[in-house]
Every structure is written in structure tokens, then in C-alpha cells.
Simulated assay, not measured.
Amino acid sequence: MSVDVRAAGAVLWRRAGDGFEVAVVHRPRYDDWSLPKGKVDPGETLAATAVREVLEETGYHAVLGRHVTQTTYDVPARSGHGVLKKTVDYFSGEAVSGSFEVNDEVDELRWLDPVAAERLLTRDTDTRVLREFCALPVSLITVLLVRHAKAGKRDDWTGDDDLRPLSDAGQRQADALRTLLPCFGPTRVFSAPRLRCVQTVRGVAEDLGVDVRHENLLSEEGYWPDPVLGIARLLAIAGDGGTPLIASQGGVIPDLISALADRDGTELAAARAGVVPSKKGSLWVLSFLPASGDVGPRLTSADYYPTPLPAPAPTRH
């Protein structure tokens, strides 16, 4: 399918008592009530677009979670002749700070419970997005799982493989991750004890003012003697609060995600012939239901971003 216009937005939400509210905005240009969204700027990822557009339209800084859905519809061409195909990717976005002020695009914002918000929304496409958002709880745990960026070929490196550094291309990927990952609000940083893994997330850790904690159970050498221990370690990290960022290796990530998906009945649509993708520099955004009673965190959603560089929409799982 040819896409002429790309856009992104979010279902912006905040806690309210024992429940939550979502933001619905009024756009005087169209005289409609909608969810905040806008067009992708050149050189911008969809996640960055969603965060920027939410801020511009609502005044709120959002931390993204799962990718909710993608809508596609026709819009008139600016020339006045013909139509264009427009796609909008929506994320879950928690409002963490800010306040609304009237701006060039939005003259009113209302915080409403989901039922009232659905009644107010003008377009059926927004209603479907809101319903998809409400299909899962808002209080999900996000784990950001990154494969280390490019580090050249192992056969070309004559030193200790643990010390093989990022290549120039890998450093560009790491720089792009440093821009992309803050959209999802990481709070802690972990890494397999390989230089290339640490270098991939070091910039994010520096921006957060935290150390990169080594996790041997999430390295290839540490994981495979007992994968159950590696999976348990990731779940323990997930249950410790905040949004952890973990850098690991291609020999670990596919098996770990497959095992969690099989255990929790989560479909991985990106898998082909049973193989879970894990390109160098790629990101998995894993969403877990919090632990309840004797049951630990359960994987309920997983989104794959094959590159941190500006790219097409993430594959939704």
C-alpha cells in the first residue's frame, strides 16, 4: 500500500482516583473533537512525532508505552485534485507533566473517563483507537529491550571479543537510540557485560545520570547454561519499578521473547517461521501486566522497532 502522509499521536491519559481519564481536544479549524496527533517532520521517528504533537496540542509531556493501533484513511490533496492516503500511528501516552493552554491548533481540552470521551469524539476512527487502547489496562510495566548496535564482523576483530567496540555505523545507531528511547521514559539501564552492549545504551544512561548495571544472565554466555534463570532475571527487573532499559545480544533476545510469549499466550506477528527478529540496534517494547499475588509480571503486548532511525511504523503484535 502506498502511503502519502504519515502521522502519529497518542491516547493521552492520566490517573484519576481509582481509574483514569483520557484527553480529548477540540480543533477549531475542523470544529471536531479528536485525539492529539500530527504529521511526521522530516528525519523524525513516529514515537518522536507522537511526543512532540501531544506537547504542541495539549501542553503535556507524554511518556509512551505500547503502540495501540494504526489507522488509514483518505484525505484531500492540497492541490484540490484527488485524494491522499494517510496513516496515523497511535501510542499509549501517560501525561507526566504540563498544562493546557489555547494554541493555534487546539482551543479546548477535556479530561474525561473513557465512556464520556467516546461519546464526545467526532470520528469513528478515533473511537476505534480509544476502544483498542481500553482493551488493556493502563497500568502496564514497560521494558525496553535493545540488541547492541553494529560492531563490525567478529572475524575481523583480533582482540578479546568482549571488548569489540561499536563501528561507525553502530555509533550512529546508538546516537539514534539516545534520541528515540527517552520517548518511552527509561529510568534504569542494564546491559550484558560486553563493550558493544554497554556502548549502545551508555548515552541514555549518561542523560539519566545513572550507571549501566551489568547483567551476565542476559549475555549469551550467561543465558544459555540456564535460560530459565535469564528469564527470571528479566522479570525481576521488570517488577522492580520504573521503566528498565536492557541491552542484550542476538543470541538471547529471540529465545527470551519467544519463551515469554509462549508462556503468556502473546502472539508475535513479526515472527516468521517461528523466528523472532532481532536486528542490531533494534528495539522491543515489552508491556507486562504487573505481578498479582503469586503470579509475576505477564507479557501482554510486544512491539518491534527494527531500527532506531526514522523508519516506517513498528509492527504491531
Rank of each mutant, 00 (worst) to 15 (best):
298 R>N: 01
171 Q>A: 07
41 D>H: 14
76 P>K: 11
147 R>T: 04
132 E>Q: 10
69 T>V: 13
168 D>A: 15
110 R>V: 04
184 F>Y: 15
2 S>P: 02
192 A>C: 03
57 E>D: 13
286 L>H: 02
210 V>N: 14
91 F>C: 07
248 S>A: 13
155 D>C: 11
87 T>I: 01
217 L>R: 15
71 T>M: 09
49 T>Q: 00
191 S>D: 01
271 A>K: 03
56 E>K: 15
280 K>E: 08
240 D>F: 04
57 E>F: 03
265 G>A: 08
50 A>W: 05
95 A>F: 07
123 R>E: 09
20 F>K: 00
242 G>N: 13
92 S>C: 08
9 G>V: 11
278 S>E: 00
84 L>S: 00
20 F>W: 11
256 L>P: 12
54 V>I: 06
170 G>A: 08
150 K>M: 07
55 L>P: 01
71 T>N: 12
85 K>I: 06
315 T>W: 02
236 A>V: 09
84 L>Q: 04
95 A>E: 08
197 C>R: 02
190 F>Q: 10
231 I>G: 10
229 L>P: 00
42 P>A: 08
115 V>N: 05
294 D>W: 10
120 L>M: 12
14 R>M: 10
83 V>E: 11
270 A>M: 15
141 I>Q: 14
225 P>S: 06
91 F>S: 05
7 A>C: 04
47 A>G: 14
282 S>Y: 04
86 K>M: 02
98 G>N: 01
23 A>D: 07
241 G>I: 06
78 R>D: 00
122 T>A: 14
72 T>A: 13
127 T>M: 15
240 D>Y: 06
244 P>F: 09
143 V>R: 09
38 G>M: 10
20 F>N: 00
183 C>L: 12
240 D>W: 09
39 K>Q: 09
204 V>T: 14
215 E>K: 08
192 A>M: 02
219 S>P: 04
151 A>I: 03
276 V>F: 01
28 P>N: 05
172 R>H: 07
131 R>L: 09
144 L>T: 06
138 V>W: 08
128 R>L: 13
287 S>E: 15
264 D>A: 08
35 L>M: 03
43 G>K: 06
102 V>D: 11
228 V>G: 12
105 E>T: 07
78 R>P: 00
70 Q>F: 03
176 A>C: 05
130 L>Y: 06
92 S>W: 07
315 T>E: 09
25 V>Y: 05
314 P>I: 05
235 L>E: 11
76 P>W: 10
132 E>D: 06
177 L>P: 13
13 W>S: 02
206 E>K: 13
35 L>R: 04
87 T>M: 01
311 A>I: 02
104 D>L: 10
60 Y>N: 01
41 D>E: 15
79 S>H: 02
225 P>D: 05
234 L>Y: 01
105 E>N: 03
44 E>C: 06
149 A>C: 15
269 A>G: 05
195 L>H: 04
176 A>V: 06
294 D>Y: 07
217 L>W: 08
133 F>A: 14
72 T>I: 12
148 H>R: 04
173 Q>P: 02
2 S>C: 00
196 R>T: 04
6 R>V: 00
68 V>M: 11
131 R>I: 05
50 A>I: 05
48 A>V: 02
